[in-house]
Amino acid sequence: MNIDKTIKDRKIELLSYFRDRASEALSSIKTLFAETQSDKRARAINENLNQTKSVLITTLLQQAEKEKWDNKEKLECVLMITYCNIVVMIESRNSVRPYEYMDFSRRVGELWDPFCKLCFYYPINNLSLFIPPLFSEVKKKITDEITDYIDNLPLSIEDKQALKTYYAKVWSLVSSGEIQLELDLHFSHNGQKYVVDFKSGFGSNEKGNTNRLLLVATIYHNLDENYKCLLFVRAEENNSYFNTLKNSGIWNAYCGNEAYQKIKEYSGYDLKNWTSTNIDWASDFNTETTAHFTDKNLLQYLLW
C-alpha cells in the first residue's frame, strides 16, 4: 500500500486492502472463537480492522508531516481511509453475525459521530481543541465563591453555617454523583469556546438523555468562559425531545443538512459534499452484504 496524497481517490484499492486484512484476521479469529461466539468474533474483527486503520493513518500523517501537506489534503485522505474501514467493518461483522435493524441502525449512528469529528481534528478554519472542565473542578470553584460570599455577610456564625448547609443540600439535589461535562467535541474558534454533542437521532425513550443535556448545557452557560453548546443530529426528522433542546435557549440544535452546514461553517470543510461525492454504500459493499441489507431493508439507515 503506497501512502501519498492520491490515496483520497483510491477507494477501490483501499477497500481491497482492508478486505485482505479482514480475511487474514478472520482466519485466525475463527480458530479462537466458535460459531456460537459470534459476538466475540465480531468484536475481534472490529478491533483488528481499527488497528489496521490506525496504522494507515499514522503512516499517512508521518508522510504528511515530511511533505508539509495542508489540513485539507490530510483530511480528505483520512476521510477516505476511515470510510473504507467502516465499509469493511460492516461487511465483516455481517459475515459473522448478520445485522438486524435495531443493532444496525444503532451502529450506523455510532460511526457517524467520529466520522464528523475528523473535520475538527484536521480543520480548514483556524480552530483549536480544548480539554473540557471536570465537574468536580466546577463544583469546587462555585462552592468556594459562595462560601466566601456567605462568610462576608453581616450574619452570625450560626446563620452563616445554616446557609452553607442549605447550599450543600442544593448540590445534592442536582446530582447524587459526578455530572459528566465531557461531550463529543470541544473547540475554540474566534475567541469563542464551543461544546458539541453529536447524535444520530432521537428515539421514543430519550427523556433521561434530554434532561442530562439540559443540565450540562445549563452548567456550561453559567461558567465564566461563556461556552456555546451545539447539537448536531444526523436524522432529518426528529421528535419532541429534539425540539425541547432546540427551543431551550441553551442549545443551538441542528439536524440533517442544517447540521452539515454548521459543520462546514465552523470547521471550514464541506463534509456533505464529500459524502455525496464519495459514499455509495450499496455499490461499495460486497455482493453478499448488499444482498442481505436489501433483503432486510437496512439500506434506508445508511443516510449520511
Rank of each mutant, 00 (worst) to 15 (best):
M1P: 12
N257F: 12
E67M: 03
E47Y: 12
T244N: 09
Q261I: 04
K262L: 12
S283K: 08
E67Q: 10
N238D: 13
F293Q: 08
L213Y: 14
W112K: 05
Y220P: 00
F33C: 03
L181A: 02
F115G: 06
L79P: 02
L26K: 06
N238I: 10
Y121C: 05
T244A: 11
Q180T: 10
P114V: 01
P123G: 09
V55C: 06
S38K: 04
W304P: 04
H292R: 13
F285Y: 13
R97F: 04
K140Q: 11
L155P: 02
L153V: 01
R234N: 06
F120K: 00
E265H: 10
N50W: 12
N243L: 07
D113P: 03
N209Q: 13
V87T: 03
F18R: 12
D4L: 00
K66C: 02
S176H: 12
W274G: 01
L15T: 07
P123W: 03
I150N: 04
W171G: 07
L129N: 07
L61P: 04
L118P: 02
P133A: 15
S105C: 02
D184P: 02
V78L: 04
L173K: 14
N46D: 10
H189E: 12
S240F: 14
Q300W: 07
S95Y: 14
